[in-house]
Write a protein that binds this DNA or RNA. Structure first.
Lengths: 211, 211
DNA sequence: TGTACATCAGTGAACGCGCGTTCACTGATGTAC
DNA sequence: TGTACATCAGTGAACGCGCGTTCACTGATGTAC
């Protein structure tokens, strides 16, 4: 049902998918404010009000595009995590944690439009209840981070009293440096210095865990 | 010269100041994208193209407004820092550092429009050369942070090898939690939990210094 | 002190732009009998 | 298998909106002599 539908082609059929794909491309270059109904329709080769058959309004389209951007981020994190080659349990767990942090930062730097879009309309994170989105939960950056921290705790590389709230410390640092490199006063920092700053921040996170 | 000018009133005279003030109010409610030439002119009670006598274009106005927002942030940081009552050198230095971090986060939460605007057009941070802006350097959040870290180092509460790059670790964590609370999945977190998260992050920063 | 003139700050009308959204419509697809 | 009909997906024209920016202008301010 889903897979045949996705193959059917544009002119009749999966316009919703096509519009989201077009929106993702617009977001890539121009960020969330470039995700316009008319532009996406144009890109999809369709009249500019056909979109209303698939989205209630522009906000709806942006939300769908944002979800795809978040998925892209999650996928990069998983890919980088899986590349880790360390063998010992402790080095491996720490390397996997660092890898997803690195991926997050790299995503912000190489795909700033997607990064900004992903967080422009993020739904609130609710602990209970059915998910508000259709996104694969295993690609959620937050879920990935939690799993990594659990891993680190499992191998005993983090003091028990430092596990609670560790998500926020790690996420804040990584999200913060990403934002500062994009929008902040670090925007024009030369490449070599950027590398050093990233290393320092990631090391700071590890250290704050008491590892 | 500057002070008489600033008192002269709107209708003839310091329209530039009036437009920036109007822009700051617009930014407060609607963020950087609400800082429009026509809206600011309207607010200042002037025809919508009078602004071109004082600003080259809209971007110019936004940059001026952003600078004022950054000043507001700096002022809050200084005020909170000066409220610290701790007496011993080490607790005092650490409390002053935590106070500016708290102020930064509080500013983001209570004045999200200003916070976003401040970072929407931040000029690159350059180490040498004349300042690109007219902003009082002593109100620069970065300068304030550096001074606080120096203080902490001076009283011996931070290992010498951890001082380099400490700005980035602290700033990233504080900026990150601020952004996540505004735009990220933490947006809808209940107030009590927010307090706890902030405490955890600030504690993580202190810990990462080895203090 | 008075006058001629340049300069400066603001006005009002107009331009073109692209957007979101709504309307009545058309043509294709699917379904009941 | 054929036919009538409902439903669905897309069209094309139009609306109103507010914006940035430019133009020729006017009236006030300041300055040289």
């Amino acid at each position: 049902m889903t897979s045949e539908e996705a193959q059917r082609g544009y002119h009749h059929g999966n316009l919703r998918t096509a519009l989201i794909a077009a929106g993702v491309e617009l977001a890539r270059t121009g960020g969330p404010s470039a995700v316009l109904l008319r532009a996406a329709s144009r890109e999809a080769g369709v009249s500019h009000n056909a979109a209303y058959r698939h989205f209630a309004n522009q906000e709806d389209l942006v939300a769908a595009v944002a979800e795809r951007c978040m998925e892209h981020l999650g996928r990069l994190m998983v890919a980088r995590m899986d590349e880790v080659t360390e063998r010992g349990p402790v080095p491996r767990a720490l390397a996997r944690l660092a890898a997803i942090g690195r991926a997050y930062i790299d995503f912000a730097r190489t795909e700033p439009g997607w990064f900004r879009t992903a967080f422009s309309s993020a739904r609130p994170h609710d602990d209970a209840g059915p998910p508000l989105s259709e996104m694969d939960e295993s690609l959620s950056p937050y879920a990935l981070l939690t799993a990594r921290l659990d891993e680190v705790a499992d191998v005993g590389a983090i003091a028990a009293d430092r596990r609670p709230g560790a998500e926020y410390v790690a996420w804040s640092a990584v999200h913060g440096i990403s934002s500062l490199l994009l929008d902040g006063p670090l925007r024009a920092l030369p490449g070599a210095e950027v590398e050093q700053v990233i290393e320092t921040v990631l090391a700071g996170v590890t250290r704050s865990l008491g590892a």
